[in-house]
Design a protein around this nucleic acid. Structure first.
Length: 558
RNA sequence: UGACCCAUGGUGUAAUGGUAACACUCCGGUUUUUGGUACCGUCAUUCUAGGUUCGAGUCCUAGUGGGUCAACCA
């Protein structure tokens, strides 16, 4: 396992290694992943998960899963379950039981009291509008609230009354006493507790005051003795506050580090916009294979390891970035190439009659299940006088570099014989209805002594031994790489009307077992497909995971 | 009219003051009974201008460009 080349570290790994070297926290590494249970995990979360869990794993540490559930109005247990499932599916395991910021409501309340006692927090009766007005703007300093000068005793009493439900929602807040003139807006006496007489998904009606993010997150980290609290760049302005609370409260000094979140072409991560897609039926649900959600990618057939490798290869840094979707697809293909079972499926069938093959006769042929994996074994497929091939694999008047079937030329049938195309029937619309060919009986796969070397090889299915299936072809959800890049254009105008094409009448080999949900196939010469949850015994349904690279298509575009 | 973060090929990420690396894409080629896979090759004087140094992508200053911050959201 030793590398002769020194491994390069990202900036977080450098910090961690430096800390370990210096014996900080006795070399202990504890990270955390802190989702708010108010939505489904998506590709952006995968990145955050891969960083926080990955760092811990690399340095023999651990990661806490902590639900940041400080806002009862938006949060729900339903999301808790899906988040847990998605993390595990990705292949990560948190330390111990899942944790909740709400577990710390009691301690957080105590912290607030301590701050008040130190004269570092006060109850403010101002309206939201007044508080906003007093905040100033980034370039204009804020002004002090008249309530800022209340006595410690009065604040203590008022805060306790807030907790006891004496006051109406929104009538009072507890604010940290920091600095209204700070150039950092977050330091201008941030609100740390608000009154919300609402039931919490875990604490029920125990509390009617709830801490704000800034007063919950850092302290929760500290309570759990998190050593490295990794988050995205937009929290960078929160760091001084994070440290201020820890410092004033004199509690465990967790440290926050920020990295740039990952953007991916053709994918959006805005909760609001994702919800819009679902509600307005642009997609069939949160797990629609076109969605950038973990459940969507899972249903599309992306292997968890591919997603992990992708996050890894995308790297970690502090600058804005947009990763090309081709990197993700490359990771998916890399994974599936090793594992997917090969099979032949004809999406748009046209019949071929092999005129010199005896009527009523058939034979069994051996086909390898995966050329990349000798242990995957073989299967039998049936060959006979009539077969189906892909309509696009035939051209009556072919260009020079067309290696497929065309009258007068030879082409190989995968796992079978070489065919010589002799003619074609057309219907009244001029559409090819039947192709005629002869076969070279001495060209059987594996024992070919014909000496013929066709340039092309086609996939096919037997006319008698194939069965119909539905195939769902997916394309990018949007027509442009960055659908949310322009504030003046609704991202839905870039919705790709052709993002889903259903092929109800494809033909698959009938020799194999009934496809089970979760099994990954490679449809030869097409791409990787997985069995969809809608699939059943009578009607197998496949989802396109990702197409094979297609250098022929590229050639044709020129 | 303030503060903070950032700047390396088409896209990302490295190079930790000693002469630009890796991956993906692209283009070209070899192998191939998947136009797949595998393999090989081409593609950058590191935003600009000064400065420090024997030596700067790396350190300093200024500029330019991009991003972020004013929810009783997280």
């Amino acid at each position: 396992m030793s590398e002769d080349k020194k491994e390069s570290l990202n900036f977080i790994e450098q910090i961690v290694e430096e800390d370990i070297k210096n014996g900080k926290h006795n070399g202990r590494v504890l990270t955390r992943f802190p989702p708010e249970p108010n939505g489904y995990l998506h590709i952006g979360h995968c990145k955050a998960i891969s960083i926080s869990f990955g760092i811990a794993q690399k340095y023999n540490g651990a990661t806490n899963l902590r639900f940041d559930d400080t806002n009862p109005t938006t949060e729900d247990t339903e999301y808790v379950e899906s988040i847990k499932k998605d993390i595990q599916w990705l292949g990560y395991q948190w330390q111990g039981e899942p944790l909740y910021a709400s577990d710390y409501f009691g301690k957080l309340y105590g912290f607030a009291v301590k701050l008040i006692e130190k004269g570092l927090a006060y109850v403010d009766d101002s309206t939201p509008e007044e508080i906003a007005a007093m905040k100033g703007t980034p370039s204009i300093p804020g002004t002090n609230s008249t309530y800022k000068s209340r006595s410690v005793a009065e604040n203590l009493q008022l805060f306790e009354d807030m907790k006891n439900g004496v006051y109406a929602d929104g009538s009072k807040v507890l604010r940290a006493n920091v600095d209204m003139t700070s150039p950092n807006m977050l330091m201008r006496d941030p609100i740390i507790y608000r009154i919300k007489k609402e039931s919490h998904h875990r604490t029920g009606d125990t509390w009617c005051i709830y801490p704000m993010y800034d007063f919950a997150h850092g302290q929760s980290d500290s309570i759990e003795e998190i050593t490295h609290s990794l988050c995205s760049l937009e929290f960078i302005h929160h760091r001084p506050l994070y440290e201020w609370f820890i410092d004033k409260l004199e509690i465990f000094p967790s440290k926050q580090y920020e990295f740039a979140r990952m953007n991916v072409e053709y994918m959006i991560t805005s909760k609001r916009k994702l919800l819009k897609l679902v509600q307005d039926k642009y997609v069939t649900g949160w797990d629609d294979p076109r969605m950038p959600t973990v459940s969507g990618m899972r249903r599309k057939g992306y292997p968890p390891m591919a997603i992990r490798n992708f996050c890894d290869k995308a790297g970690v840094a502090k600058r804005e970035n947009t990763i090309e979707i081709s990197l993700l697809e490359s990771c998916v293909r890399e994974e599936l190439n090793k594992t997917a079972l090969r099979t032949m499926v004809v999406l748009d069938p046209v019949k071929v009659v092999i005129t010199n093959y005896p009527e009523g006769q058939s034979e069994k042929l051996q086909a390898e299940n995966n050329p990349e994996d000798a242990t995957a074994g073989h299967r039998e497929i049936t060959f006979g006088r009539e077969i189906y091939i892909e309509r696009e694999d035939f051209m009556e008047n072919a260009p020079p570099k067309y290696f497929r079937m065309t009258p007068g030329s030879d082409v190989r049938l995968k796992h079978a014989y070489i065919l010589h195309c002799t003619g074609v029937d057309k219907d009244e619309n001029g559409e090819v209805s039947t192709i005629y060919a002869t076969y070279y009986s001495n060209s059987r796969s594996g024992e070919d002594v014909s000496g013929i070397k066709p340039k092309g090889t086609l996939h096919w299915v037997s006319a008698t031994e194939s069965k119909p299936c539905e195939v769902r072809m997916y394309d990018r959800l949007f027509t442009v790489a960055d659908p949310t890049g322009d504030d003046d254009v609704d991202f839905l105008t870039y919705y790709n009307q052709n993002s889903l094409t259903v092929i109800p009448t494809a033909l698959m080999e009938s020799n194999q077992d009934t496809p089970k949900v979760g099994i990954q196939y490679q449809f030869l010469r097409h791409g990787y497909f997985c069995v969809d949850v809608d699939s059943n015994e009578d009607k197998p349904i496949f989802n396109l995971t990702v197409g094979l690279k297609d250098s022929f298509a590229k050639e044709m575009k020129k």
